[in-house]
Design a protein around this nucleic acid. Sequence first.
DNA 1: TTTT
DNA 2: TTTT
Lengths: 167, 167, 167, 167
Amino acid sequence: MLNRVILVGRLTKDPELRYTPSGVAVANFTLAVNRTFTNQQGEREADFINCVIWRKPAENVANFLKKGSLAGVDGRIQTRSYDNNQGQRVYVTEVMAESVQFLEPKNANAGGGQQYQSQGGNNFGGPSGDRGYGQQQNQNQKRSNFNDDPFANDGTPIDISDDDLPF
Amino acid sequence: MLNRVILVGRLTKDPELRYTPSGVAVANFTLAVNRTFTNQQGEREADFINCVIWRKPAENVANFLKKGSLAGVDGRIQTRSYDNNQGQRVYVTEVMAESVQFLEPKNANAGGGQQYQSQGGNNFGGPSGDRGYGQQQNQNQKRSNFNDDPFANDGTPIDISDDDLPF
Amino acid sequence: MLNRVILVGRLTKDPELRYTPSGVAVANFTLAVNRTFTNQQGEREADFINCVIWRKPAENVANFLKKGSLAGVDGRIQTRSYDNNQGQRVYVTEVMAESVQFLEPKNANAGGGQQYQSQGGNNFGGPSGDRGYGQQQNQNQKRSNFNDDPFANDGTPIDISDDDLPF
Amino acid sequence: MLNRVILVGRLTKDPELRYTPSGVAVANFTLAVNRTFTNQQGEREADFINCVIWRKPAENVANFLKKGSLAGVDGRIQTRSYDNNQGQRVYVTEVMAESVQFLEPKNANAGGGQQYQSQGGNNFGGPSGDRGYGQQQNQNQKRSNFNDDPFANDGTPIDISDDDLPF
DNA sequence: TTTT
DNA sequence: TTTT
């Protein structure tokens, strides 16, 4: 049935890139989308919308977007639930991005000559062999916060598995 | 900024119609939207997406849709948060519907000759005087579950106020 | 860049199914989408939107939709131009459907037991071997208007080629 | 019925601003939207999509966008037809923008201190009195091509009337 | 827990 | 807490 979401907004933080046990990339990020109308106090509020993206585009997102980047998302709303550590069922509504568009001007924050090749597109190309590389690149280029490492054990289970794959 | 959602799915329950203290109608409903792909077990899952609609279209929704009805929604994703009774902050992502389309065939469940005039449209016409009527009609026609009554006190605060008005 | 269209409307005629020289299916159809507002004469007008769909979903469309069917489309706007027989350049704007949803109730116009299996989905599966079959089925099941035959020569060149393939 | 279009692309030319006889502003512009996929020659093509916008947002578009500007559009597909001067019926498919988002960075091409107030929004505020002003401003700020003047007579009838108003 |  |  029809389920389509289009967003343009800014990342509230750097994206988080992880890998499933079988090596498939997933990135999470939140878009702040400013409302086009003001509230009764005359302020312009924003919606903070959680997005997920899989495979190669996930690595593109991790490599080319960061806190504050302007981005467009074309995707679907997905819902899921899990039990938290207090034994309560938690319901989650998020956007499964099918493609992400990088709207930052090319020279935006570039310190060097890396090309801001845009458009994750729909090319969910196989992740075989990309894994170490994508991750490597990411850590080198923009990551310093070490506990983003999906394999670091911070006590909370990594809530992704290949079952979450959208195909 | 761009924030657009389009859904077609079926109501999981009858819509819930309420009124703010100042008499503005709000309806809540959940759409089950079947995915177009199957999971790794070969099953077709669904997403359960909470929707809100205000004013006159809210009353139309309450009057013309019920559990199982096929409906289309054009709207925006909105996020908000509140503190639950355990003092935890709860984050909510839902769809603010701007218009709802009734996709049920005209004779679907009609017991009589009432016209299934469709399309809430964008006419957020003033609710003046509609209130008693809309509510009345609704209770008579399809409501029996009494504690949907927005003025009945079931102990939990009614989490709507005129501040939630989208304009 | 972002380019997304979602429509719900009714087919103005039976879809037209054709095949490229290399055997890829294409279907054309027009959706009448009623406006949600009325014009200054108080009439509700409609927009008539030309849609194209390729490969397997094209055959589904030809097999399961006909004049008057209610359908949803998720796709992109595409533009192209060609020179007509008066040597004038003609500009065309149409919707490249990526998926089509069948919104007709199951028993809508069924004369028999054929299942109205819905949802073209995104499965642009290879057309190998489907060709004769899909076409056959279509002519048998619902086609009688002979000059829909893509290979009949009515003097106007068939304006499709494998170059139109969206991938 | 559902009819929703979202686009992000660049203006192919400066927008054209006109006024109906009764003084309502209309702007026309074309968005070039690059495809996310390449054709069989490996080239990335674009779609050129004609857009219309009415009233106050039309004046904002004329004042803040120009050839090359990156913009987002949220609107509907509309179709209409007219008879050209060879007596042929011409069918037109275009996007009726309901809101336009300015995606150019603030300092993009600013020569001075004018504020790039963004977002036409949905405020179809009355045009009373805006007319001379809006037009004035536009001609002064960015227009030099005189025959964009909607009242200049270049022989072709001005194809707008208040009947085209979407409400 | 939020972006410009 | 989920619809056909």
